[in-house]
Amino acid sequence: MGRNKNRPFLKFHMPALALLLGVFLLPATCAGSVEVAPERVGIGAFFGGARLTVTGEVPQGAQAVIEVVGRTAEQDLMRKGRHWDIWMNVGEVDVFGAPRLYYVLSSSPQLISTANANLPWGYSALRKEISFRSDNEKLEAGTLFEEFIKLKESQGLYGVFPDAVTLSSAPAGTESLVHAVISVPTRITPGDYQICLFAVKGVQSTSTSCVSFHVTLVGLPAFLSSLAQSHAVLYGLLAVAIAVMAGFLSGLLFKRKKILGSQQKDQC
């Protein structure tokens, strides 16, 4: 179920709105539909990631691009460098405007080619949004962006997936059905994420439709995360108490095993 279905006003007036925009503002900026299932991802005690299915429609003859974006947050990183032939951290780098998660998927590889710097999606678009602040003025921003992407891709949080969107003809014949599967990594942080479907002709987007999904902690992770943040002293003491008990318990178990073993020997 998409976000638009939660908004009756938009649902009933969208066709009229789209027609109006279609007449006055060609090409249309908001049309079509996109849905994601499931809309909520719960992170429980065991979590191996999740698979989200994205479906939607684009006008026939159009290609499709899907962008998955998390909220932006300031990130503090360390920059490595070489001093006296030794590799070490040489300074801090603050990253601004970078989303927590960024995936872009397309039905055609040319649509997310890094060679085209003017695309409104993909790493070329992301480069314009992200800025870096470093205490070392000698560092070049271009290199930092490439290195930042490499780090995020290694963590599974950023990715470019050409040909990951499949298009098929709708029965009515006027639109193409869009289908894609997104693998959510285990490193995903709780919060809201937005999925946007772009219908593309040439390299121009002719319509955009967005939907969001929510990631939340449930069960034991939710309890422990809340306890660690709200009652840190209690949490620390609990951690120590569990460790001490586990240490003594294993000691007692081994002692008991040894006693039983020696009793059996005596009986023999």
Binding site: L220, L224, Y235, A246, G247, G251
Partner: peptide, 24 residues
């Protein structure tokens, strides 16, 4: 452990318990 839990919220109890079951 207590200092790290209070100052940095960095003690992961699930990780520690998994490790300590093996280590004990």
């Amino acid at each position: 452990t207590v200092l790290q839990a209070v100052a940095n919220h960095a003690v992961d109890l699930v990780l520690a318990v998994s490790l300590l079951v093996g280590s004990s």
